[in-house]
């Protein structure tokens, strides 16, 4: 059985901790990249990354998900909701790369 992990601030993590997921609490978003790299070496199926952390380490996320197929990284909304639309921006850049143009919603 593969496990799941959440990388986020304390409030976001608390919700997922009680769902039975592994929790990696990251109090400073700058440390998110190194924590994510460390989590990548473990045997996780999916790593959920909070938006506030993902905002700071987008390059690490892209690099890791291109290099290895497992685990899958998914960006989830934050408890604070201060950085909305990080995941949507990632999706948009993906579309631009794939079809060579922007798509309106």
């Amino acid at each position: 059985m593969l496990k799941m992990a959440v990388l986020g601030d304390k409030e976001t993590s608390l919700l997922f901790l009680s769902m039975g997921l592994d929790v990696l609490i990251c109090s400073r978003p700058q440390e998110g990249g190194s924590m994510l790299q460390e989590a990548f070496r473990k045997d996780y199926g999916i790593i959920f990354v909070a938006e506030s952390i993902a905002q700071e380490c987008m390059d690490v996320i892209e690099g890791l998900s291109e290099k290895k197929t497992f685990p899958i990284i998914t960006i989830i909304p934050d408890f604070t909701q201060r950085f909305p639309r990080v995941a949507e921006a990632r999706l948009r850049s993906l579309i631009r790369r794939a079809i060579g143009m922007e798509l309106s919603d």
């Binding site: 593969l2 799941m4 901790l17 009680s18 039975g20 199926g45 497992f70 899958i72």
Partner: peptide
């Protein structure tokens, strides 16, 4: 109250899609 969960969540790979992405 929420600190010590009694539920355990996990994933089983049930198959792969056309693009070889895992299905959980």
């Amino acid at each position: 109250s929420m600190m010590w969960p009694t539920v355990r969540s996990g994933l089983d790979i049930s198959g792969y899609t056309m693009m070889k992405a895992p299905q959980f």
